[in-house]
Design a protein around this nucleic acid. Sequence first.
DNA 1: TCAATGTCTAACCGATCGGTCAGTTCCGTG
DNA 2: CACGGAACTGACCGATCGGTTAGACATTGA
Lengths: 179, 179
Amino acid sequence: MTRPIRSRTREAILTAAAARFTAVGFKGASLQDIAADVGCSKATLLYHFATKDALLFEMLAPALSAVEEMDRQLAGLDGREAQEAAIEAFVDLAVRFRGHLTMLNAELPSLLNQPGFNHLLPISERLADALAGRSDEVKARVAAQVVLAGVSGACAQLPDLPDDALRAALLPVTRAALN
Amino acid sequence: MTRPIRSRTREAILTAAAARFTAVGFKGASLQDIAADVGCSKATLLYHFATKDALLFEMLAPALSAVEEMDRQLAGLDGREAQEAAIEAFVDLAVRFRGHLTMLNAELPSLLNQPGFNHLLPISERLADALAGRSDEVKARVAAQVVLAGVSGACAQLPDLPDDALRAALLPVTRAALN
DNA sequence: TCAATGTCTAACCGATCGGTCAGTTCCGTG
DNA sequence: CACGGAACTGACCGATCGGTTAGACATTGA
């Protein structure tokens, strides 16, 4: 039984919003433009999502959950073990969520004031620490930042590359950058 | 002879605008907020810079010039030679301009419609090609994108690291990622 | 000192924005 | 078919935005 067209509007809005936010940023995307992309009214959009922020949060919720889960998995690990686990998990995440990670990063300053997102900065710092293999050396920390920005940036830039091909390329590149 | 305070307003505006644009994006920064940061009126700001766009363009002009110059230098080079030259030049650029490169990248979709900026996309593609050592392999091209986003992202993330320390760390990381 | 020029400003403008609301239409169920 | 609730909408709202303008103030050079 196919779902009626009307009950698919909510998903269409989320998809269109994600595309707009990723292309021109949160502030650069207007609710009217998103509604027009979907082919509904702005008021319809606001019937389904109470605020513009609610749209962004719902878009980012799966990536946020996955980031939190990754953080938990990395918590008890050290040195080389932490690094390898972080590499695998982060690359998987970036490939799976493509441009959403860069959205998380771009909107981080404002997201930090929101309940549910305020632990993101410590998570990000712990991830960088794991990628650096728990090392305090400048080079290791710089490499971790290169990987954080580079892997998520590359995934956003290469939307047409299939997941497995992208992942297969990213893993050795990431390992090489960190070692 | 110290310049009078009034004639320093223009530079203060540029500095404050750069900080705001880098922190919250072009659309996220309002002229009123920038003016408040400087301690002048919005109309004063618009006396010195005709439009908000003019502010952004002037902020980005030095980085743009440097990118164009780098493009010219890379034009006749091939394979390994192209790659090494691109690595050195790009890392130098990113360190020198810190967050401005990420601004160039973030605003690229809208900048492409502006005279003076419309050659940026081909330049960016040629730079990625040089970083990949003119290789068509998926891994080489993915690595180039990682470096483009990663090096500029890391420079934006580490504003307190001195230039020479940052450069010294970035060069080996970049080479390793690309080889 | 004075006129010309540079710099700054408060008040204003129209446009766009996120959001609200009363009313309409659609859908599923008994 | 009638009904209640879900989904949708045009018109509206106040706030903020980039930008404009006439006038005030500051600076400079003769």
